[in-house]
Design a protein around this nucleic acid. Structure first.
Lengths: 103, 103
DNA sequence: TCCCGATACCTCGTTATGTAAGGTATTATA
DNA sequence: TATAATACCTTACATAACGAGGTATCGGGA
C-alpha cells in the first residue's frame, strides 16, 4: 500500500543516512515500515533515475560479489530538497488530520 | 498540494457529518486545512461519481436559489469504508514516520 | 445596465506515479 | 540441479491528480 508521492522523500531520507543502492533502499523501506510500505522495482528505479536527472542524487556503479551495484548519494541540492519534502509531508499529514478531526 | 489517494477519505469523512454537495465539500476541505489541501473540480467531481458507482455514497439533485445542487449522503457500505480508509491512512502515516524516524 | 465574482455542476486532455510483469545476470542454498 | 535471493533494468497499463474549458444562475459594484 503506497500513497503516491511519498517515495522521493523516503529515498532522500534513506540516503541522508549514508550512500546506498536501489535494492537496499527498497528493502530498508519495507523492513522499517513492517512491510506496510512496499514499493515495487517499477516505481523505485524510474524514481531514482528521475532524481538523478534532477540533480538530487548522484551515482557510482561498482561490482560486489560479481553483482553490479549502483550506489547513490545525496547532492547538496538533494539535502535541501529533503528538508523541503519532510516539511511538506508533515504539513500535509497535519492538514488531513485537522480536517478529519474537525467537527 | 495533494497526496494522491486521500480525497475519498476526506469526502467520506465530510459526509459522515451530514449530507453535503461537491462545491461545499471542496470548500470545507480547503478551509478546514488552512488551504493546505485544495482539490480542484477536475479531481472532485469524477471522484464523487466514482464513489457513487461503487455504492459508497448516494445523491439527490435539488435546486436552491435557482442553482442546481447534488446532495450526497453516505450509504451503510460507505460508512464501513470510511472506517477502513481511516485505518489505512493512519497506518500509512505511522509507517512513513517509522521509516523517517529510524536511524 | 452590464459585467464580474461567487456559486454550482460538468468534461476532456495531459501529467505523474504507482503496479504487474517481463527481461538479464550472478551467487547462495536446499 | 533448480530455485531463491540479489541486483539492475524496461514496458504496458491503471489511477488520480491538475489545468482549462464549458454551462448556468445570482448578487453586487461601476
Amino acid at each position: 500500500m503506497n500513497i503516491k508521492g511519498s517515495l522521493p522523500l523516503l529515498v532522500l531520507d534513506a540516503l541522508s543516512k549514508g550512500s546506498s543502492y536501489g535494492y537496499q533502499i527498497a528493502k530498508e523501506i519495507r523492513e522499517q515500515s513492517d512491510a506496510v510500505l512496499d514499493f515495487q522495482e517499477g516505481a523505485l528505479y524510474p524514481t531514482l533515475h528521475k532524481m538523478e536527472l534532477e540533480g538530487l542524487i548522484e551515482a557510482t556503479t561498482t561490482v560486489v560479489d560479481g553483482r553490479r551495484r549502483r550506489y547513490y548519494h545525496l547532492t547538496p541540492r538533494g539535502e535541501g530538497h529533503l528538508a523541503a519534502e519532510r516539511h511538506q509531508w508533515m504539513q500535509y499529514v497535519k492538514a488531513v488530520n485537522m480536517v478529519l478531526g474537525a467537527m
